[in-house]
Simulated scan of single mutants.
Amino acid sequence: MAKALISKADLERIALQDNHVHRCFNSSLSTAERKGIIASNPMARIEQLPSAGESDHGLALDEADLKSLVTGLKPSATMYVPVAVDASTGVRRNELLAFRWADFSDGAKTLKVERALEITKKFGLRYKPPKTWRGKRTIALDDCTVALLVAEREKHQRIMAGIPDGAEVDLTLVKLPDDALIFPARPGAGQDFDFAKPRDPSGFSKAFRRAADALGFAGFEFHHLRGTHATLLLDKGVPVHTVAERIGDDPAVLLRNYAKRKRKQTADTSVATVINDLSAGIFGS
């Protein structure tokens, strides 16, 4: 099972300490080499640990573990659907939490990434456009994810219209607000359901980490789902540029991170087939 043995924070501290020692020795021995005290600098042949910003690129689950993680969250009314959608799309956390129902098309089987949440000191939580032109994109969805989102939308429509579960009504007549989020914040005690109130991203990540730890995936962070999604697609032979376009990343960066995971590639397959097969495995179909 692909799990981290130490925490991300510990790994970052180790990387920083190792790189500091590497730089000190390298500087000293380079001076000694330049002055002719030693024949060559042995530090030039020693590999550094990745920097703190790259220390967790290797964390990716295989299909079996991803299925265990996603299905293990089914009892959670607040975590299962967003985690399942993220596992099948590879979107960033702040993109996921900024999705509106207006971005979803069950007919076209797509989700549009138009914005992302941003945490600021001055303005608090707010929306921002994608950082680069790659970030604004339309993501193709598999049948399982479409069905999951349709069911979630129907829940919101029932809440909106005050219709109890099980009551047979034409929900197409119930219109959600234009700014209604797919994954809004849950109301507190005595509060009304606010369809446009976003979840706190940090709180969401912490809740995921607790849930993942409880399922035996200690050290697996929410953002690792993005790398897992990309890795599984690349392992199945989907071209790098296609995967990069799907997750809104630079192909060169994606390939570099993928290489660090040292995964085995398999036969080439069309992305639509791969995504549907991958989703079927995740959802246990």
Rank of each mutant, 00 (worst) to 15 (best):
residue 2 A to Y: 12
residue 2 A to Q: 14
residue 4 A to I: 12
residue 18 D to A: 14
residue 19 N to H: 10
residue 22 H to D: 13
residue 23 R to V: 13
residue 24 C to E: 14
residue 25 F to M: 15
residue 29 L to V: 10
residue 34 R to G: 09
residue 41 N to L: 06
residue 41 N to I: 07
residue 42 P to C: 04
residue 46 I to Q: 05
residue 50 P to M: 06
residue 55 S to D: 03
residue 56 D to A: 13
residue 60 A to Q: 07
residue 62 D to F: 06
residue 65 D to I: 09
residue 74 K to A: 01
residue 74 K to Q: 04
residue 78 T to D: 08
residue 85 V to D: 00
residue 90 G to K: 03
residue 95 E to N: 09
residue 98 A to G: 05
residue 99 F to Q: 03
residue 103 D to F: 10
residue 106 D to Q: 15
residue 113 V to N: 02
residue 114 E to G: 04
residue 118 E to C: 00
residue 120 T to K: 12
residue 128 K to W: 14
residue 130 P to S: 04
residue 136 K to H: 11
residue 137 R to C: 08
residue 137 R to W: 07
residue 139 I to P: 02
residue 140 A to C: 02
residue 143 D to V: 06
residue 150 V to A: 09
residue 153 R to L: 03
residue 155 K to G: 02
residue 158 R to V: 07
residue 160 M to V: 01
residue 165 D to K: 14
residue 167 A to Q: 13
residue 172 T to Q: 09
residue 174 V to P: 05
residue 175 K to P: 08
residue 176 L to T: 03
residue 178 D to V: 11
residue 183 F to S: 00
residue 184 P to W: 06
residue 185 A to S: 07
residue 188 G to L: 07
residue 188 G to V: 10
residue 190 G to C: 13
residue 192 D to K: 12
residue 200 D to H: 01
residue 205 S to D: 09
residue 208 F to E: 00
residue 209 R to T: 13
residue 217 F to C: 04
residue 220 F to G: 00
residue 222 F to L: 10
residue 225 L to M: 13
residue 226 R to S: 01
residue 230 A to L: 00
residue 238 V to K: 06
residue 240 V to F: 11
residue 240 V to W: 13
residue 241 H to T: 11
residue 245 E to A: 15
residue 248 G to P: 01
residue 257 N to M: 14
residue 257 N to I: 14
residue 263 R to T: 02
residue 265 Q to H: 06
residue 267 A to I: 07
residue 267 A to P: 05
residue 273 T to D: 15
residue 274 V to H: 03
residue 278 L to V: 01
residue 279 S to V: 00
residue 280 A to R: 07
residue 281 G to A: 09
residue 283 F to A: 08
